[in-house]
């Protein structure tokens, strides 16, 4: 409440000092942080447990439980293979989960859990919150540990007898873990902050080097959504 009193005082002072003192009054404006309103209510532990299911790379948030590669394979064939393929190679345009090792510098990199993902926790967290597609939150925590163990095994990150649990999920070393770095555009692309050329900026004839029409994958009006 003391902050509120300061607000009142600041206003009172500004009025007393009248117009010549305006710059000074501005300086004395209260901090933008508002006082607490008392709106809302405390979140109960059961409620937090029900919704707070995220798992961090260091294992924070991992629920007590475990699952092995063999059980994961059974679950994968029953729950996942229809979209992701029996070996995680994917059906149609559904996501590929396995393989792609060493492809990240290639023309068409294959970014899978094994070739690209930096943390094992992400696979567990994402399967648990959003998979199977269309039936999210239907797997038990042990099921998700087993599925994650199977996917890590298929990607040659862990051995066939591996058991994934809340104890070791923060310790799995992923092959591509060291290959990510924070946004560096303001340094790596500093040259984009420069006054541009306005006149005679290119020498010679400007030629067309690529055309969308050649690829011709743009949908026509008929394939768009229908409206009444």
């Amino acid at each position: 409440m003391s902050r509120f009193r300061n607000v009142v005082l600041a206003f009172g002072l500004a009025a007393a000092l009248a117009s010549p003192a305006l710059p000074q009054a501005k300086k004395m404006q209260p901090p933008a942080e508002p006082a607490k309103t008392g709106l809302g209510r405390p979140a109960l532990p059961e409620e937090i447990k029900a919704w707070d299911i995220d798992v961090r790379p260091d294992g924070l948030g991992a629920p007590v439980g475990k699952g092995d590669v063999k059980k994961g394979e059974e679950l994968f064939l029953a729950q996942c293979a229809a979209c992701h393929g029996e070996f995680g190679e994917a059906v149609g345009r559904w996501p590929v989960l396995v393989g792609g090792k060493g492809s990240l510098k290639a023309d068409n990199p294959e970014k899978t859990i094994g070739s690209y993902w930096p943390d094992a926790s992400t696979a567990f967290d994402y399967i648990r919150r959003a998979m199977p597609f269309g039936n999210a939150r239907s797997l038990s925590d042990d099921d998700v540990y087993a599925l994650t163990a199977f996917l890590l095994n298929m990607n040659e990150v862990v051995k066939d007898d591996f058991v994934l649990s809340n104890e070791n999920i923060g310790k799995v070393k992923m092959p591509n873990a060291g290959a990510f770095y924070d946004d560096d555009r303001t340094t790596a692309e500093k040259h984009f902050w420069a006054e541009p050329c306005m006149k005679n900026c290119k020498t010679g004839e400007v030629k067309v080097t690529g055309r969308a029409r050649v690829i011709d994958v743009t949908p026509d009006g008929k394939s768009g959504p229908k409206v009444e």
């Binding site: 995220d54 961090r56 790379p57 260091d58 990240l104 510098k105 990199p109 970014k111 859990i113 690209y116 993902w117 930096p118 943390d119 926790s121 992400t122 967290d125 994402y126 959003a130 290959a179 990510f180 770095y181 924070d182 946004d183 560096d184 555009r185």
Partner: peptide
């Protein structure tokens, strides 16, 4: 710390020519 969720690791990271990737390219 950040949570390294699927949408900031597998997705919304920017693969560069050297095989490394930028993360947290927010702007």
């Amino acid at each position: 710390q950040p949570w390294a969720q699927r949408e900031e690791t597998s997705k919304y990271t920017d693969l560069l020519a050297d095989g490394r990737a930028r993360r947290h390219t927010f702007v």
